[in-house]
């Protein structure tokens, strides 16, 4: 049987079909959770932001139109929710990539050196917020640069630049991991 599209499922849910939402949720729960978790830094905040994002998606079901790609629409809602959260919790901070560098080591960073994967995760946590978000939208959600630019509200060139910087920094971590494995 042909798989229903995200857009059709969302419209079916808006029309009262709970089974459609079950299917939609199963399809996107993992990537969306990891996208939020790697930005939040801790499980409790990630859980709150994740649940809040879905609640906003549920509330906005009536305003959703099938002409817009559901996945980009869903990540835009999640992006805005996360940004609002950090603006409230850190109102004095500047959201520019240069000043939003995550200096505080996350829980995963404590495991650097124990596992290569954790080293990579720690490198991701150390990225500036905007670079990390662009990278997560690329690696977790699989968006192209045009959609990433739309979701984050920046130009295509800005999104491309952020991704290039993020990849460059992670390549060093990946390279050192590979070097460590070879030696």
């Amino acid at each position: 049987m042909r798989e229903r599209s995200d857009e059709a499922l969302m419209q079916a849910y808006a029309g009262g079909d709970m089974a459609a939402f079950d299917c939609l949720y199963a399809r996107h729960r993992g990537p969306l959770y990891r996208y939020i978790l790697r930005q939040a830094g801790d499980d409790a905040t990630a859980n709150d932001l994740y649940q809040g994002s879905w609640e906003k998606i549920i509330r906005a079901r009536a305003s959703y139109t099938a002409s817009a790609p559901f996945k980009a629409w869903m990540y835009r809602i999640a992006h805005n929710h996360v940004v609002d959260h950090f603006r409230r919790s850190r109102p004095s901070s500047d959201l520019s990539p240069e000043t939003m560098r995550a200096d505080d080591p996350g829980p995963e960073q404590a495991l650097i050196g124990e596992q290569a994967a954790c080293r990579l995760a720690a490198a991701v946590s150390a990225l500036p917020t905007e670079q990390r978000e662009v990278l997560l939208l690329k690696l977790e959600a699989g968006f192209d640069l045009r959609t990433i630019a739309e979701i984050t509200g920046v130009s295509h060139e800005t999104a491309k630049s952020r991704l290039r910087y993020a990849v460059g920094k992670l390549k060093i971590a990946v390279g050192s991991e590979q070097d460590g494995a070879e030696s």
């Binding site: 079950d22 959770y33 994740y50 879905w54 994967a117 690696l139 991704l163 990849v167 991991e177």
Partner: peptide, 28 residues
């Protein structure tokens, strides 16, 4: 990017807790 993605796929695929799943579905 291909190298980073390859390493990224080796990361643990963290999933939301079951309680959160249930909470979201109940909300829906």
């Amino acid at each position: 990017l291909a190298a980073v993605r390859s390493a990224w796929e080796g990361l643990e695929q963290t999933e939301p807790p079951d309680l959160i799943d249930q909470a979201v579905l109940n909300t829906a």
